[in-house]
Amino acid sequence: MASFNKYRAGGSFRLADIKPGATPFKEGSRSEQLAQLDALALQLDVLQNLLHAEGSRKLLLVLQGMDTSGKDGTIRWVFSRTSPLGVRVAAFKAPSLDELAHDYLWRCHAVVPRSGEIMVWNRSHYEDVLVTAVEGWIDKKELQRRYAQINDFERLLSETGTVIVKCMLHISKDVQRARLQERIDTPGKHWKFALGDLDARKKWDDYQNAYEKALGATSTRHAPWYVIPSDSKTHRNLMVARLLIKTLQDMKLKEPPADPGLKGLIVE
């Protein structure tokens, strides 16, 4: 099995060193991979039940990526067998007027995971060091300040019982072109397409540079970044599922002790 270490940002990290079309966690045919994914989804459900039963810690999964990288699809497939009672999803869109009236982390803190819960962020506070930097809405001094604030925010979460995993879904420009064109050519997918997606695509290199800088500045011991090669949707889902399972296994979750009053109890 491939190691996650190669895909963890940090040190002399370069995004270009990770190929979007790589499939290091691929095993067998596509049908075999889909069967593996279903088995992993069931395993994830068991681990989530343990997390809920233990009731003291939380897991936050952050998903970032360019348009069409598959954030929605990852959530749909990886958590396909998990109880909706134990998993919540928050989608971060353009901030509302109310959100803009607060600091940029305000809306994030409102949706952190509760004890015993897995929380998934579809986009996140990283929009405020990616979009804002590429569009020139903040200067370099403010960008560095936000990196530090984000690290402090994530350390707060970690020190209060939240395990954080951050995944950048890494696709190639060619694959994005094909996926955007499919949305245009398929009437049932028109709702997924926005003309603004093309504006962001024109700044592809700027966004790749912004991602590299952000991941390098905010991948920490308590909140690591992993780059997930995502040209293959199936591989993307398998890799994220395996990463989450490894993370939960490393937490060494335990069921709470049974109530002594249950010993010998007979239900009549």
Rank of each mutant, 00 (worst) to 15 (best):
S3Q: 12
K233G: 05
T186S: 07
D152L: 14
K19G: 09
H52K: 03
V131N: 05
T247S: 06
D98Y: 02
L42D: 14
L238V: 10
L51T: 04
H235D: 08
D199Q: 13
K213W: 04
L130R: 02
S115V: 10
A110N: 13
V46G: 13
L40K: 02
I150P: 06
K58H: 00
R155C: 11
V62I: 15
G116W: 07
D174A: 12
Q181V: 11
A210M: 14
D206F: 12
V227G: 00
A91E: 08
Q176Y: 09
T162W: 01
Y207T: 08
E135P: 03
L85E: 05
A241R: 03
I18H: 00
S219G: 00
D174P: 02
F4A: 02
K254G: 12
P20L: 03
S31H: 07
S115H: 02
E142L: 05
T23A: 12
R155S: 01
D152V: 14
L215W: 01
S230F: 01
V240F: 08
L34T: 15
R81I: 02
L248D: 12
S115G: 09
L63H: 01
K71I: 12
D250C: 08
A110M: 07
K173Q: 07
L51R: 08
A91S: 12
P260R: 14
V267K: 12
W137V: 06
Y207H: 14
M168F: 15
A53R: 12
Q144T: 12
G116A: 03
A241G: 10
R123S: 01
G264C: 08
P20S: 03
Q249F: 02
T132H: 06
E159N: 11
E127S: 09
A133R: 15
L47C: 10
M119T: 07
L50Q: 10
K189G: 06
I18Y: 00
D45T: 02
L42N: 10
H190W: 06
A53D: 14
S219F: 00
L37Q: 09
L47W: 15
P113D: 11
N5T: 12
L34H: 08
P187W: 10
I118E: 01
R183L: 10
E159C: 05
L169R: 00
P113T: 08
D185E: 15
D250E: 15
A148T: 15
V240E: 10
A41T: 05
Q36A: 06
S31P: 04
R236S: 07
K26P: 01
H190Q: 11
P187G: 06
G86H: 14
D103A: 02
R221T: 10
S56R: 11
G86Q: 05
G70E: 01
F193S: 04
V112F: 09
V165D: 02
I184R: 15
P187L: 06
I171V: 00
Y211W: 04
N151V: 13
L169Q: 01
E54A: 06
H170D: 00
M239K: 02
M66N: 03
S96Y: 03
W137I: 07
